[in-house]
Nucleic acid binder design. Structure first.
Lengths: 189, 189
DNA sequence: GTCTATACAGCGATAGAC
DNA sequence: GTCTATCGCTGTATAGAC
């Protein structure tokens, strides 16, 4: 079902790349028209709210992806080990193919934070909640998400892409060990 | 020794706050003049290279602080436990009083990353090296710095300042436990 | 739906008086 | 060293033809 006319969904994917490369403030409409191939007319047709509208559409799309591919598997049935494995696989695949940048984290650090505060907070708190559901351990959830996010920063800062999967793998085995210990306590308690 | 005329060092401190609040792209010269109380004339007198020069001065100042208060204690004499404790105390104090933002991390995520790539990489690799010196464990070093940086993001994203010291405290006890286990292996090896 | 032309505010930076 | 005035450019956003 090929289409001649552009679709909003296609534009959102291209926009995600641009925002990942340049951040919110650093992304100009000129860069967007170059990346998407759409003129300003088309862009404002799809996103009447302008640049903020475009960014919001991207965050929504990413949020939906995580809800579907990361949070839901964490809340599914099955042993914690398996649920955690599903999460780590999805997350590692996702960031490896997206320039090792988490848009929510990037937006949380800039002045655009206030503008998107609600959706940023929702992304992370949903993630923490789902991890807590899977492991029964809120602190473990926070440690795990923090390690993953920090590993993304380190990988980017040191220009060492391999650092992310390596750090994520250790976080995974630590999380699985602790979840197992919690499910089957060694002695009493 | 009071002075009437402004000093570059004072300006750098004020600039740090501005860049932390707005990021690099989001910091305008107008915001800088408001925050520092200096006109453009004075700013360009102190920082002939303009905005990039100002940001670089801030990064240098922060880098020096970490070198002195964080990395050196990690390389000092004494048991690993003590060196790690010194690092965590310094880091927690630092970020608690500075809006829970690491400028190097913030700059690493935006489009200004390329401009400051060298100094950003130096900051993190020095930190990792110093931690490896203290613990003898490169992976532990990466996990620790990643957890701290991720905790900063989470605290900011969730607007929950307490999350940072709580997560840092767990990272500290984990690091000390692992460093101890490495220094005094339980059995053979 | 897509284009070109344009409005107009704000940007970083500079000049020159004091 | 600090100020004010101003430059040239780019930013987002809009208007209107097609």
């Amino acid at each position: 079902m090929a289409r001649v006319q552009a679709e909003r969904a296609d534009a959102v994917l291209a926009l995600a790349t641009t925002f990942r490369l340049h951040g919110y403030e650093g992304t100009s409409l000129t860069a967007i028209t170059a990346q998407t191939g759409l003129g300003k007319g088309s862009l404002y047709h799809f996103f009447p709210g302008g640049k903020e509208d475009m960014a919001r559409a991207v965050l929504d799309e990413v949020g939906d992806w995580f809800r579907r591919e990361v949070y839901e598997p964490l809340r599914a049935d099955g042993p914690a080990d398996q649920r955690l494995a599903a999460m780590f696989t999805a997350v590692e695949t996702y960031f490896a193919s997206r320039h090792l940048v988490c848009l929510f984290a990037a937006f949380a650090l800039g002045q655009e934070r206030d503008r998107f505060a609600a959706v940023i907070a929702a992304y992370f708190s949903e993630w923490l909640d789902a991890l807590e559901t899977a492991t029964g351990d809120r602190e473990l959830a926070a440690d795990t998400v923090a390690t993953l996010q920090g590993a993304l920063i380190l990988a980017r800062a040191l220009n060492d892409p391999a650092l992310f999967p390596a750090t994520a793998a250790r976080a995974q085995s630590r999380a699985q060990t602790r979840a197992r210990a919690r499910a089957h306590p060694p002695l009493s308690s």
